[in-house]
Every structure is written in structure tokens, then in C-alpha cells.
Design a protein around this nucleic acid. Structure first.
Lengths: 216, 216
DNA sequence: GCCAACTGAGTGAGCGCTCGTTCAATGAGG
DNA sequence: CCTCATTGAACGAGCGCTCACTCAGTTGGC
């Protein structure tokens, strides 16, 4: 039978996805190799034809998560020509990723302590690379006189933090869509850095029929 | 009871503290009862003279953490007479706690998945109780016309989120003191909810020459 | 003042079981 | 017929937890 879903590559992917789901649910130490194998539809021994160790599986999940987040951030920033639209686009990308990829994000943030020191160093480097792009935007916004914030480094940390935590409460089908959350967080970030031209109080952007900000 | 430093109460406390440190470092599943015992200066069997199970130890850590955070928040709010000073005081208390009690906070946020469903329910109730106090402040600020934010619920989530994450990067002796971070975050929170009177000096509505709409 | 009875923290070998990992054997596809 | 993913038994280590026991320290009858 050709195309029976049993090729080596497909098993690789199923192992990866099974590991993500289980690590997110039970944690790295709380997940057994047998559970991962069962979820991927193979037996224990077969895992080791595809990954060197459980530890390597964790590292691979984290590495790919960061690379994906970086790729999306870069894509979002391509069209931004000024710090305001750049920050809005960056925060939107950040928030969307953390809302839509909850399992990947949960593993990445909760299992840092389960990584070997060697692997951890590599992941931290990727994380810094990600944060640096936000710092650059805020720094430029200040230089251009658009943003007014006393502690830009803390502001960037705060902006990243509020986005990261989305994965802990966001559920698809909840009150707000991921896109709505992402837009709102973009506005929050601009308020945070003291950008005055985007005050949230006044109804902006044509399609806002529900004047829900200030009923009397 | 002679004061020889071997009283049962002291062992209780040492077990609790050892569990906090180890759970924070290696996670709940990654920590063994023998490690906890060794860190507390006793052997395995003795643990069970003080706690019912490893799971109960985790629950106790989380419960006490939330109760402590709630107590500090209430203490901080006693003197607040208006939404502005209340939000500032609440965020300051929140940020300080998450900076100063990193190990407690790490366990509380990273090991929710390791709790029994029964225990988890109790912890979530405490967490909601904590968040509700912030919601009340923001709601009152909006009603009084002091805060201007379109999405108050998301704003509260964002404010709590940025404070929670402090435990992941704050280290005593770093660039900023916990107090400095807490004050700055208080200002961030007020910017976030659209409170105009406390922002760093800036040209309000002095013009927003850049296109505000998104590019697509 | 004495000693037997009692209390409860501490001990450490050991229970049944599961862990991550290995490997000889298997069998289907090219 | 050869290749290689897959299997499942097996390995040694380690898991949470138990339990018969030790041993200070305290109590209370005489």
C-alpha cells in the first residue's frame, strides 16, 4: 500500500507533535517515552530511530518554536516603515503567535529548567534575538520623538510579558478572537511606551459601531 | 518541648522550603522525595510524619503562595482612596511579590498541570479572587472618568501578565531594584488604562503625522 | 526519686512499579 | 535480497511510599 502514512518522515512529525501536546499537558518530566510513542502510533523502541533522546526531542521543540516565532515576526515587520506601525505589527505578531500556538509556547516557557545547560544556552540566544527586535523598535521610536517612556528596557520586557502570558488564558472560541486580542495588545503597547497619537478612548477606525468605551 | 532546633515545627518548615526550592529548580515531577528529604536534613520516611504526600506538599506551597499574595495586596490597598492610587498600589504590590518571591511564583505558575483536578480548582478560585480586585479598581476608574480603555478585561489581564513574568528575569542585585521595577510597572499600568495625568511629560495630541491605520 | 509506659520524629531496607534506553529479531517495500 | 523502520522483551536505575523499628523526651503512679 503506497501512501499509508507510515513513512519515516511522517513518523518524525507525529513524534514531534505528540511530544508537544504531552509536554504541554504533563510537563517534560511528567511525560514518558511510552506515552509519546503511543500518541504517535508506534512503540517505545521505535522512537530511537528518529530522535537521539527524550532530551533532544525537547530541545528540538523549543528550537523550532523560536525559529517559527522569529520568522513570523520578520514577516510582520517587512512592511513597517515607522516605529509606530512597527511596534503595532510586532506586538500583533507576538500576541497572535502566543494565542494560536499555546502548546508550543507552554513547553518553551515552562520547560526551560528541563533543558541541559548546553541546550538552554542556545535557546536563550534565540530568545534574546527575538527581544532585540522589540528593543530596536522602541529605541527608534524614542529617538524619533514618537515614544515617551522613562524605562525603555522595562517597557519592552513588560510588552513581551503581557503577550507571552496569553497562552495561559486564551482559548479559541472564547470571548475575543486571537486577532481582536492581538489588535488590543498592539494598542496597549503603544500606550505603554507613551505614544500619544493612538489614545484608545476615542472611537477610531471606521468599523466601531459599538461605542463600548464610555457609556455614561 | 525543648528548644534544641529539632522540633517538629521546624522540620515542617524546612520541608516546605526545600520543596519550594527544588520544585522551582527541577519541577514537581523532576523532584524526588529523597531530594526534598535530603535538603531538609532528614531521610525519606520521615517526610510522611509531616505531609500526607508529595502532591499535598505541592498543593500546600501553592495555597500558601496565593494567600500571601492576597494578604499583601489587601495591605497595599488599605490606604488607597481613589482608583489611581489603588491601581498604582496594587500593581506595585503585585510586581514586588513576583520579583521577591521568585521560587514560590515559579512553582505556582509552572506546576498547575501537576496538581490534581481537585486541588487545581481550589487554586484557580484563589487566583480569580486575586484578579477580581484588579478588575474592580479598573472598573471604578473607568466609571469615575479617570481611565479610558476600550477593553478593561484585557487590560487587567495584560497588567497582571506583565507583573507575573517578572519572576522569569528579575534577579536581586541586577540593574534595577525590585522597588524601582515595581514603581515603573505601576506607571506602565496607568498608561495602559489610559490615565492621562501620570505619564512622562509628552506632547499630548501634538500631532500624529504618521499613518495610523495598518498597511493592509 | 524512681522507673515503666507512652509519644512521636526519625530511620533505612524494601515494596511494586515505571523510567529512559538498548538490541536481536522481524518483515514489508524497492 | 537488501534495507531499514518497527517491534517487544529486557536492563539497571530510580520512583513514591510503607513499615517495623530505634530512641530521646515526657508523664504519672508509687
Amino acid at each position: 500500500m503506497t501512501g499509508d502514512g507510515r513513512s519515516a518522515h511522517k513518523t518524525d512529525e507525529r513524534l514531534h507533535e505528540s511530544a508537544v501536546q504531552l509536554f504541554a499537558l504533563r510537563g517534560y518530566s511528567g511525560t514518558t517515552t511510552r506515552q509519546i510513542a503511543a500518541a504517535a502510533g508506534v512503540t517505545v523502541g521505535s522512537i530511537y530511530n528518529h530522535v537521539a533522546s527524550k532530551q533532544d526531542l525537547l530541545f528540538d521543540v523549543m528550537r523550532r518554536t523560536h525559529q517559527e516565532a522569529l520568522a513570523r515576526l520578520d514577516a510582520a515587520l517587512i512592511r513597517a516603515r515607522d516605529p509606530v506601525s512597527a511596534l503595532r505589527a510586532a506586538v500583533r505578531s507576538h500576541a497572535l503567535f502566543h494565542a494560536e500556538q499555546g502548546a508550543l509556547v507552554a513547553v518553551t516557557y515552562q520547560e526551560m529548567g528541563a533543558l541541559d545547560p548546553r541546550h538552554r544556552k542556545a535557546i536563550i540566544a534565540l530568545r534574546d534575538q527575538y527581544g532585540q527586535k522589540f528593543k530596536d523598535i522602541v529605541r527608534r521610536g524614542i529617538k524619533d520623538g514618537l515614544f515617551h517612556v522613562d524605562e525603555p528596557e522595562l517597557a519592552v520586557l513588560a510588552i513581551l510579558s503581557m503577550g507571552i502570558q496569553i497562552y495561559t488564558w486564551f482559548r479559541p472560541g472564547g470571548r475575543d478572537s486571537a486577532s481582536k486580542v492581538a489588535d488590543t495588545y498592539g494598542a496597549f503597547a503603544l500606550s505603554l511606551v507613551g505614544y500619544a497619537g493612538d489614545a484608545p478612548a476615542r472611537p477610531r477606525r471606521s468599523g466601531a459601531p459599538l461605542a463600548r468605551g464610555r457609556h455614561g
